[in-house]
Design a protein around this nucleic acid. Structure first.
Length: 562
RNA sequence: GCGCCCGUAGCUCAGCUGGAUAGAGCAUCGGCCUUCUAAGCCGAGGGUCCCAGGUUCGAGUCCUGGCGGGCGUGCCA
């Protein structure tokens, strides 16, 4: 590829001057008059070589003058090198794209190594809300990006089926159960007030009858607990499936207690000599590893604090062979990051283990007003409702289009709008258009380039600026995917796709059969038509693959339901 | 008090290791459908990139100090 060729030549030239570690850019300038590619290498070298950047640029321009695919090189501004490429060199990427097909954009950065993405990990105490939706979309797409980067990815959901919140859920179910039997038990302090608890109590009543009516013991509570957890977990799984999110494994916090891992972890931490007793509790010197203060690990009453199962769990991940772990969590959990890592470091794990992607919260707007939702108060906008309302594809896209650490305002009106305002439709529409183009060509009895025949098309015929701009954009897809994967930032893909769809539409309009028949894709000239249909095929491939990475359908035709 | 994140157009937000005249969508205004789907395109207006210093040939981007907002800072999970 021409970019690699040029960048190698530049690096080699720098090396010839004794600079082997120069950092420079070689990318597509915003301004068309700055060429197809521009580099700041002369500016980067100026200080090292103690020479004016324009002189260096001039030397480089002369030196690279004969390089294949480059038409001419200009020195501009303070010392930028602007490369103007031959049409054939630019178009060559189209052949690569159609040959790679549904694999275009993949790379082998992960080299087949295992990596775990843990996400959602909601407590089974209620339905998934929109915050979980953002997390589900982020985690799933980060996993997909890692897969596209050659990692062996494992998706895991950790569910907290132990502890106080679950007890409160069971007590809330019992209160509702007894209410249904005519008692006036109040929902306990700190309990769950949502209507779904009443439904669970009703289902429990239907299955078990009134046998637990006056039974206040542990066994009754346990029966309600496991029933409620089962119902809620099934519901969460259903909502996630509707959102096109699946997990390889659901890991139970309870199991960490029942199989002794929490106990083993306490003993292991105690054996490090980094623990001490104070006020009747057992503390861990997490400050040794950068935490703001030491933390209690075993409370005065003998029970472990919540971060211990987290440490035990991550030791278990490590033992299962996952030395690369990405945890996707809400930023309200950031306080726990340091202490969990500190506990793990005390046990000899590396400092950056595990990695965290902390996303900001989601607020919902409808009619310009913020919609308040609170789990405890029982007022809801659940992920299931949202998927059903706007569709999984739109919901996923909206959750993904902002970078994780930025606050997300979910505009329900815009998401529900199936007309021209929704960015998801713009991308899908561009894809459908390209499919339509191929279909029409076939209907007119023309051969349409496919994976095997497209590489024979003469891409150097694509000289119009809309064609070149689109072609160059398509060539950058793998780089964007790589950047999105390594940065754990799916929104980069959204931005790329919106821009690409825009260029597709511009190109499409520029070849309007009436106003500008010379640039139309479906022309009589077979050579030109094949070149343009190859461009269409390549663009369709990129849009399809980009949407696939986001877990979104790329339709062959759009049906307007008006 | 301390820690993390955020502050860019009227609104919601991009801006990759510092690069050329700061971008997109929505909203506003003006054009474009007898031929490939107008769910689209073309154009216009709209900016103290929170403020003040500093580093640099060059700062929205890096450093320091402020201001504003969110979250955290439990022997709660």
């Amino acid at each position: 590829m021409y970019t690699e060729r040029i960048s190698d030549a530049l690096r080699e030239a720098a090396s010839g001057w004794g600079v082997d570690d120069v950092r420079f850019r070689l990318d597509r300038p915003k301004e068309a008059s700055h060429g197809d590619l521009a580099s700041n290498i002369a500016l980067a070298l100026a200080a090292r070589l103690k020479r004016p950047p324009r002189d260096i640029a001039g030397d480089l321009a002369r030196r690279l003058a004969g390089i294949a695919g480059v038409e001419r090189i200009e020195v501009a501004g303070p010392g930028f090198l602007n490369f103007f490429l031959e049409a054939g060199a630019v178009g060559g990427v189209l052949h690569r794209i159609v040959t790679a097909g549904s694999g275009y954009g993949r790379n082998e950065d992960g080299a087949g190594r295992r990596i775990m993405v843990e996400f959602v990990s909601a407590n089974p105490t209620g339905p998934l809300h929109l915050g979980h939706g953002r997390q589900a979309a982020l985690g799933d797409v980060i996993a997909r990006l890692l897969d596209w980067s050659g990692w062996d990815v494992h998706r895991e959901f950790y569910f907290n089926d132990a502890g106080r919140q679950i007890s409160r859920l069971a007590e809330s179910v019992r209160a509702r159960y007894r209410q249904l039997l005519g008692h006036d038990d109040p929902v306990p302090e700190g309990g769950y007030h949502g209507e779904y608890v009443v439904e669970i109590a009703g289902a429990f009543l239907e299955r078990e009858g009134d046998r637990y009516e006056n039974d206040g013991d542990e066994a009754a509570l346990e029966a309600m607990r496991s029933f409620a957890v089962g119902v809620l977990r099934d519901e969460q799984k259903r909502d996630l499936a509707g959102f096109k999110v699946h997990f390889d494994e659901y890991y139970s916090e309870r199991s960490l207690y029942s199989d002794g891992r929490v106990k083993v972890t306490i003993e292991a931490l105690d054996a490090t000599g980094l623990t001490y007793h104070r006020d009747g509790a057992l503390w861990l010197r997490t400050t040794r590893f950068g935490d703001q203060k030491d933390r209690v690990m075993v409370k005065r009453d003998g029970s472990p604090t919540y971060f211990l199962p987290d440490v035990a769990y991550h030791m278990n991940k490590w033992e299962r062979g996952f030395h690369e772990v990405v945890n996707v969590q809400g930023s309200d959990h950031h306080g726990t990051v340091d202490r969990v890592r500190a506990g793990l470091q005390a046990l000899g794990r590396p400092a950056g283990y595990p990695e965290y992607v902390l996303h900001q919260m989601v607020t919902v707007e409808r009619g310009g007003e913020e919609v308040r939702f609170s789990k405890r108060a029982g007022s809801y906008t659940t992920l299931g409702e949202l998927s059903a309302e706007v569709g999984a594809d739109v919901a996923r896209y909206f959750f993904l289009m902002r970078r994780p650490e930025a606050h997300l305002t979910f505009d329900l009106d815009l998401a529900l709008d199936e007309s021209d305002k929704n960015p998801v439709y713009k991308v899908k529409y561009a894809h459908a258009r390209l499919c339509r183009l191929e279909k029409l060509a076939r209907e007119r009895g023309w051969d349409v380039p496919d994976e095997s025949s497209a590489p024979r098309a003469d891409a150097s015929l694509l000289r119009a600026s809309a064609e070149r701009e689109l072609t160059k954009q398509l060539g950058e897809f793998p780089g964007f995917l790589r950047r999105a994967a390594s940065g754990r930032t799916p929104h980069v893909v959204c931005d790329y796709l919106e821009r690409t769809a825009g260029l597709v539409n511009s190109w499409y309009q520029s070849g309007h059969p009436t106003r500008n028949p010379g640039l139309a894709a479906l022309v009589e000239d077979a050579g030109l038509r094949d070149a343009r249909l190859t461009l269409a095929l390549a663009a369709r491939t990129v849009l399809h693959n980009g949407l696939a990475v986001l877990g979104i359908e790329a339709p062959e035709r759009m049906v307007r339901d008006e």
